[in-house]
Amino acid sequence: MSTTQAPERRGALRGIGSARTSTPQNLMVFVLSMALFGLANILLEIIPDVTIGPVDLSVAYFVFVPLTLAALLNPFWAALGAPLGEIVFTDLLMGDFSGLSELEGFIQMFLAIYVAGSVVRNPRSRPQIWLGALLIVGIDKFLSAVVDLAKVWVGVEDAEYVQGLPQSILLLEGVGFGIDLVISGILFGALPAMWLIPALHGRIEPLLGMRPRVPGEPRPGTVPWAGWFVVVAVLASLLSFVFAFLEAWDVSIGSVEADFRGQYGDTFLWVSVGALVVVLALAAILFSVWRRRRADR
């Protein structure tokens, strides 16, 4: 129906080497990754999840979509686009937006896709594709499992009355990790990618005005200093932990608040409501001042 019918355009292929990629080509990879991963997530949103007891047997995401783009095109921009597509297409549009944890998920997914895309040096090598698919799910799910465990650990330490929770969470996270690795990583990751990446290699790049990758050539968009990349990756994952803990933080705030309530009675609540009102009023005043200044200009 609305499939593109235009004849293939011819033009100089401008290459995909790191120094030579132009901004429009990066934008193309970014938008393509966003649209395709968003579409894949929409499909998953419509499919109901199968849950057996506490174990979730659902497909977390179609890993082969971002892996294909990261393996064939610039992995940095593909990795940047895919999680944004998930947020924009499904989370915002479906009303699933969960604030700070979206940032946490964005950073984890970005790291996972970028590392996996950098690992695939030869888009026609099956072992490398397998490794890439398992790395995406492994890194993403491992990071979020660690965050979840740590969150519960901190929460449980503060709130001792939650019984029977630590062991169950540990078991569930372990089982969930294994199932995700098998379903999302192999069934919907490595196996489709093994077929799709060689099938698209040499066909999709000319459509974007790029030269197909030659096996073994340096990665487009490779980070020049590997050491710096490790530092940045560690910082980014720490940052995602911070965002995750900002959410879990309220457990400790709550216990402090309860203490304050005990000590100072209901005055504390009034103080917090008052603080809220003052902050809002300040924000409104600042905003109107800024508007007036802008109007004067």
């Binding site: 593109t4 193309m28 938008v31 393509l32 649209a35 979509v65 799709l196 999709i204 459509l207």
Partner: peptide, 13 residues
């Protein structure tokens, strides 16, 4: 997804 990849690549360009 194979034709979708190619179609989307064209329209994105």
């Amino acid at each position: 997804f194979y034709p979708i990849f190619l179609n989307t690549a064209k329209s994105v360009r």
